[in-house]
């Protein structure tokens, strides 16, 4: 299952709620304001780092760029994908759950 999160972790609990429901085979993709969660050195970044020990985490590059977040600010281990990568992730997983 691919889980997408599109809300800022500093404005809603959606990221935490998503991470609490990950099961075997899960992957997380941060999009839109969700990409703020990939910022290293923050509480959300620590949650992502911990999640990375069990599940892959991806972040959408154009959304990072829109928000002025450079790759060296992103938590190590998070993989940046473009729109094509987004589509590939959707195809690779049986289902997608959008955490809105």
């Amino acid at each position: 299952m691919l889980h997408t999160v599109n809300k800022s972790p500093f404005a809603s609990s959606t990221l935490t709620q998503c991470l609490n429901h990950l099961a075997a085979g899960a992957a997380v993709l941060l999009i839109e304001d969700g990409v703020y969660g990939a910022t290293a050195g923050t509480g959300a970044g620590a949650q992502i780092a911990s999640c990375l020990k069990r599940f892959p985490v991806y972040v959408l590059g154009p959304d990072l760029e829109a928000r002025g977040i450079s790759s060296n600010q992103v938590v190590e281990g998070v993989v940046t994908v473009d729109y094509t990568g987004f589509v590939k992730l959707v195809v690779e997983h049986d289902a997608v759950q959008s955490w809105l």
């Binding site: 154009p62 760029e65 829109a66 002025g68 977040i69």
Partner: peptide, 11 residues
């Protein structure tokens, strides 16, 4: 944030 650059998301 001055680095904001939303061209890639069409805004």
């Amino acid at each position: 944030v001055s680095a904001n650059n939303p061209a890639g998301i069409g805004m």
